[in-house]
């Protein structure tokens, strides 16, 4: 189960992720990001403090988001990651792609 919450703070949008992002949850996450795909200058903070697990399908959505934000000239950052998730990010090199806060 994955809970996705979007909150807007002036120019920045915080995306809070709670639970497990497996193959089933990844498309849901992609749909939950719908408002982001319409943004002109996306400033995104992914709050992953309560993200327990991420599969490669989940990483794909992260990658898509990263590419979209880069193309729009915006920024995307990750908040504190749990150790297991952090391992995945580091192993796959995704840690390098995202700015860590």
């Amino acid at each position: 189960m994955l809970n996705v919450t979007l909150t807007n703070h002036e120019t920045e949008t915080t995306v809070t992720l709670e639970g497990r992002m497996d193959t089933v949850a990844a498309p849901e996450f992609e749909q939950a990001l719908a408002p982001v795909w319409d943004m002109e200058h996306p400033q995104i903070l992914l709050d992953c403090q309560k993200l327990e697990y991420i599969s490669s399908s989940g990483l794909r959505v992260f990658l898509k988001l990263k590419k979209f934000v880069d193309a729009k000239g915006g920024q995307v950052a990750l908040s504190t990651l749990q150790p297991t998730v952090k391992e995945v990010f580091e192993m796959t090199g995704f840690a390098k792609m995202f700015q860590m806060k």
């Binding site: 580091e90 090199g93 390098k96």
Partner: peptide
Amino acid sequence: SCHSNIPIGV
């Protein structure tokens, strides 16, 4: 020990 290179296709 491995360098953390990103996956291919990115």
